[in-house]
């Protein structure tokens, strides 16, 4: 298969970026999208040009490192898949493919397609944990937890922190990301203890870092590679409001 690629190139955070056009040929349909970029990069290196910088690591859809807007869609075509899990058979032979970094003010570009997602770490540092000390805990089976609750906690905990939700949201909101963590811990008895404090602290940090507000468009859920439901945002709102009432 052959493709024309329009790729965002940007030297560093301070420089102005722009699109460059490249051609790749003889790509197998079983080749993954990132392998296709590897092939382009190897060609560029042989031509003495700088390869395109993009984030990636596990290439199994779990580390959350890869992060591309492909033809205007976070993580490209396909439901419930990260960029690294997209295979070229999803594209038409001869297609022109536009590749951009995450589009979000909270995730500034570092170089080309690589962005800084440190804001997500900061939100979790504000309260996305249960304050237990190492080796100071009860037996794992001491508190039975209904299977349905544990399953729902797991649904939310599947978040890989890739940033697609905020990058997709027209308001640049990180609500799905924050909700996934808050909701996962809120469904478990051991997470309830700090529930109110957690919801307030994480929301406050999210606002402080310049993420936008949620207007329930549902775009985040549609683009989430782990199909995390916006029902968790409803739970976050409930947690946040009841925490505020307690004040």
């Amino acid at each position: 298969m052959n493709f024309t690629l329009k790729i965002w190139r940007q030297k560093d955070a301070k420089s102005k970026g722009g699109f460059e056009t490249y051609k790749v040929s003889d790509i197998s349909e079983d080749t993954s999208f990132l392998e296709m970029l590897d092939i382009l990069n190897n060609d560029l290196i042989h031509a003495g040009k700088e390869p395109v910088a993009f984030d990636h690591d596990c290439r199994e859809g779990i580390c959350g490192m890869c992060s591309l807007h492909i033809d205007g869609k976070a993580h490209g075509p396909g439901q419930g898949a990260t960029t690294c899990q997209i295979y070229m058979r999803k594209f038409k032979d001869g297609a022109t493919i536009t590749i951009e970094p995450w589009r979000s003010a909270a995730f500034p570009v570092i170089k080309d397609l690589v962005v800084n997602r440190g804001a997500y770490d900061q939100i979790l540092q504000a309260g996305g944990f249960i304050s237990v000390r190492t080796n100071s805990v009860p037996d794992a089976n001491a508190i039975p937890i209904p299977k349905a609750d544990a399953d729902e906690a797991m649904d939310a905990a599947a978040c890989i922190g890739c940033g697609a939700c905020a990058a997709t949201c027209k308001n640049g909101s990180a609500m799905l990301f924050v909700a996934a963590r808050v909701s996962s811990l809120a469904k478990l008895p051991q997470g309830r203890v700090e529930g109110a404090r957690r919801a307030k602290a994480m929301v406050a940090k999210m606002d402080e870092l310049g993420f936008g507000n949620c207007t329930n468009t549902g775009a985040c859920q549609a683009e989430c590679p782990k199909s995390i439901s916006i029902a968790h945002i409803a739970r976050l709102n409930r947690e946040f409001l009841s925490a505020k009432f307690e004040d």
Binding site: V132, V137, A140, K147, A150, D151, A153, M154, L188
Partner: peptide, 11 residues
């Protein structure tokens, strides 16, 4: 330790 941290193991 992991259960206390909120790791949602299968139940």
């Amino acid at each position: 330790q992991c259960v206390a941290q909120g790791v949602p193991f299968a139940r």
